[in-house]
Design a binder for these strands. Structure first.
Lengths: 193, 193
DNA sequence: TCTCCTATGTTGCTTAGTCAACAAAAGTTT
DNA sequence: AAACTTTTGTTGACTAAGCAACATAGGAGA
């Protein structure tokens, strides 16, 4: 059904948590496509009908789960509540890189199949974050294009790194990557704090 | 209100768990009479009105909590699913002794004030357990009196031990206590399995 | 192929939990 | 003592979760 539940309602928060937690645990145990909606609801001890009130299907749950996890990485580094600086940008690139390898190791072998999902979620959020940063510098031109360029560059560099056979040390790699991305943003940075 | 909720309903189980867990955590932190119903519901993240649907007040919660904990001790030793033997009786006495000291150490200093509650709950459950045991031996006389005598004896001996300045080793104490209690029950034990 | 079985969505009705507002009790402060 | 703040129970209207039943879709196996 998906008739928009109220995110502030404690009951809604609770059941979402139960679903998310159970799903994470199941993902650690077995492959995504062997996980059924029933598995999730049984583990969460909620009714199956309740699941469908929250998510369209298990793919929507996976989508949400990935989005959630990346958002947490962003928030744990407070990147969502700061403004553009080269250092923060560096931290953002680093976050994307780490997230990639984390997914490849934490869950089972199943990751290849939903890497397009991951790409979509990461890029959406990086883009939104960069937009916020750019808009805080009240620049004369539109923020969309620089944000887009930087987003794709960041994601591309991160997946290039995470896919490399002999990965160079993350810190040194990010040092190299930073100027390639920052060139799109630095031009506005004079107005920043 | 307390309009009997359905114990089988997952929602009911969940909120009870939330309440119990929060209460336990609060009890570990501070004294019982400084704990408010609000504290519990805030920690449990449930509505205050919901609390009152489950418990009359915080005293009823305390009552329930103690009952619950002792029942768990009984069940973890499978005493609820067996029959009378001197060894099982020994285990029961031991359980009561351990429960007494556990309460005195685990929670804060507050225990003295609700020791009558503890006494009531322990005795009720020991009595019910002994009744079940006695009835399994289909004895010719009524089970109530031997069960009562044994219950009081067990509780008395356990609190005497737990209150002693220099407590003797539990095992040896129980060895001494066992015959004093068993004398009420052994006479029927010939019929037992 | 046909059957069996399991997972999926969906539905109408019931029950539990939320919320806000209230009056009244119990502590606190001054 | 009076004025205050906090906590307590209780209420009624609303929303989410549970349940059982259904039709359907897909796989697995004879």
């Amino acid at each position: 059904m998906l008739s928009k539940l109220n995110d502030q309602d404690p009951r809604v928060r609770r059941t979402r948590q139960l679903i998310e937690r159970s799903f994470d645990e199941l993902l650690a145990e077995k492959n995504f496509d062997t996980i059924t909606v029933q598995d999730v609801t049984e583990k969460a001890q909620i009714n199956r009908a309740t699941f469908y009130a929250h998510f369209e299907d298990k793919y929507a749950l996976l989508d949400h789960s990935i989005r959630q996890k990346f958002r947490q990485e962003i928030e744990s580094r407070v990147l969502n509540a700061c403004h553009y600086t080269p250092e923060n940008l560096r931290m953002l690139i680093l976050t994307v890189c780490e997230f990639q390898v984390k997914l490849n190791t934490s869950c089972a072998q199943s990751q290849k199949q939903f890497s397009p999902l991951v790409e979509k979620q990461i890029k959406e959020q990086v883009y939104e974050l960069l937009l916020v940063w750019l808009r805080k510098m009240n620049i004369p031109v539109s923020a969309e294009m620089p944000a887009t360029a930087a987003t794709w560059a960041i994601y591309g560099l991160a997946s290039y790194w995470s896919a490399s056979k002999n990965r160079p040390a993350l810190e040194t790699y990010v040092d190299e990557a930073l100027p390639l991305v920052a060139v799109n943003l630095n031009q506005f940075a004079t107005e920043a704090v």
